[in-house]
Design a protein around this nucleic acid. Sequence first.
DNA 1: TGACTTTTAAGGGATATTCCCTTAAAATAT
DNA 2: ATATTTTAAGGGAATATCCCTTAAAAGTCA
Lengths: 73, 73
Amino acid sequence: MYERIRNMREDRDMTQSQMAEYLRIHQTTYSDYEIGKLNIPLQVLDKIADLFETSIDYLVNRTNVEIPYPRKK
Amino acid sequence: MYERIRNMREDRDMTQSQMAEYLRIHQTTYSDYEIGKLNIPLQVLDKIADLFETSIDYLVNRTNVEIPYPRKK
DNA sequence: TGACTTTTAAGGGATATTCCCTTAAAATAT
DNA sequence: ATATTTTAAGGGAATATCCCTTAAAAGTCA
């Protein structure tokens, strides 16, 4: 479901547990997200976009442009 | 909370009820979103970004660039 | 100003979803 | 092959969602 997030994580050689630690959630919860079993909360997408240096729009497949606009705040 | 969405809606002279109709949800639910009483689901942000011709990043204040990323699909 | 209309928000509850736990399965390494 | 690491399934208590009714606020206009 969230193939793009999975691929970006693997590209960076990160495990689901490492992602979960960064996000401060359980590994199984993160797995549920990647699989699409659970909806990824906005706050989580926000942190993932920062980590991967991309946009939420890219993460959720609204665009194919990976580079984000200038980050605010 | 979601001041930006509220402002963009008002700029377009739309009521919460009109937004709710477009999103196919109840007006009170939409109000809950704008106020920040409920989290806005991704699917809803997606439709609002389309309606307002901007990005999810802009709607949720990740960037100040209002123009959308090139739309995929 | 006051009555009327329109718009927005509060309270509350049935239902749906979330998150994490345990543990199993799958993948990888030794 | 077996041990280790990584990922996913099942399930349940806790939480959040969505909408209903209705109240409050804002706008209209005689």
